[in-house]
């Protein structure tokens, strides 16, 4: 594992956050399988080191934009289980009062400008948040999360061009998990992914996305530099999703083998790797970590229980929040 100069507490926070994401996803999957969750959802399991390594290098006031596979980003940026599960179940106490759901979960209190159900759809938003910071004289940095599949969207090239022209404090973080839906990345992306950014003069790095310390160390450096006006930057994080494209994607052998999945899960799992490192380095004992896992498991179970019993928004909310200044949009035009 790549070493960085963080202290014990930071290491344990990173471990905790990765386990929280994995645990959140296990519960979300269970909610789907037991038909308690409306709709579908995309699991982040396997990619935890990316979100955590990056978000642990950010301040609360820094911004992120997220994707359809966004629970990991949301947890990593500081969100609570209770409001997240409530949102997944469409309940009033959810982060978005049940109006967004899994694919639009946003938590502005921690700088998460929201997941996005349009592949590549948040690249403009992230770049604009960075533009805003510069215009308003703030030193916030924005990280734009997106998948390898999103590199096929034209918007990415338009906004990277502007970010580079104007030295915006934005970091484009491409989570290359090898697939977009049911298609291998090498079938949809010609040439090199980092070279796309380099063509605009943007410094680009490829990093092992299963190594939380490597991700964190690189991000810390880039964030510091972006804060000083040296941005933008681009990171390609090599990672893997354990589940199907979404929770309903069960039979996957037509596009990827069980052996491949097994190899990533057993030999490259970000949590297992980091855990053995923590123990080897004497930072934590197996018992400490087991206790932490158990506590997180209980937290998640409590939050799920809470969310299942929480109330749905009143039907009168259906036409609220369409406009900021019109309480009920459908009442606005009535003669």
């Amino acid at each position: 594992m790549a070493k960085s100069k963080t202290n014990t507490e930071d290491y344990l926070t990173m471990y905790r956050q990765m386990v929280r994401i994995r645990t959140f996803e296990d519960n979300a999957n269970q909610l789907y399988l037991s038909a308690k969750m409306p709709g579908l959802t995309h699991m982040y399991s396997g990619e935890e080191a990316v979100a955590v390594g990056i978000c642990e290098a950010l301040r609360v006031t820094d911004k992120i934009t997220s994707t359809h596979r966004g629970h990991g980003h949301c947890v990593a940026k500081g969100a609570e289980f209770k409001e997240m599960f409530c949102e997944l179940l469409g309940k009033e106490e959810g982060y978005c009062r049940g109006k967004g759901g899994s694919m639009h979960i946003a938590d502005q209190s921690n700088g998460n400008l929201g997941a996005n159900a349009i592949v590549g759809g948040s690249m403009g938003i992230a770049t604009g948040a960075a533009f805003s910071a510069k215009l308003l004289g703030k030193d916030d940095v924005t990280v734009c999360f997106f998948g390898d599949g999103a590199t096929a969207q034209g918007l990415m090239y338009e906004v990277m061009n502007m970010a580079a022209l104007w030295n915006l404090p934005v970091i484009y973080a491409c989570e290359n998990n090898g697939y977009s839906e049911y298609t291998r990345t090498d079938e949809i992306a010609a040439g090199s992914i980092t070279a796309r950014a380099e063509a605009f003069g943007i410094e680009a790095h490829q990093v092992d996305g299963q190594d939380v310390l490597a991700v964190n160390a690189l991000t810390q450096k880039l964030v510091d530099r972006a804060r000083k006006g040296e941005g933008p930057f681009f990171m390609e994080l090599m990672t893997y999703r354990y589940h199907g494209h979404h929770v309903g994607d069960i039979n996957r052998e037509y596009y990827r083998s069980k052996e491949e999945e097994k190899d990533w899960k057993e030999n490259r799992d970000p949590i297992i790797r980091f855990r053995s490192w923590l123990v080897e380095e004497g930072i934590a004992s197996e018992e400490d970590l087991d206790a932490m896992n158990a506590e997180i498991k209980q937290d998640a179970a409590d939050a799920v229980e809470y969310a299942l019993n929480a109330k749905y928004p009143d039907v009168s909310e259906v036409d609220m929040h369409v406009y900021t200044d019109i309480e009920h949009a459908l009442a606005r035009d009535t003669a």
């Binding site: 911004k63 934009t65 400008l113 759809g121 948040s122 690249m123 403009g124 938003i125 992230a126 770049t127 604009g128 948040a129 960075a130 533009f131 805003s132 910071a133 215009l135 308003l136 916030d140 924005t142 918007l155 338009e158 906004v159 502007m162």
Partner: peptide, 11 residues
């Protein structure tokens, strides 16, 4: 798109 993000963050 950039303007949307700027608007969401105080501009």
């Amino acid at each position: 798109g950039l303007a949307v993000g700027a608007a969401m963050t105080g501009s």
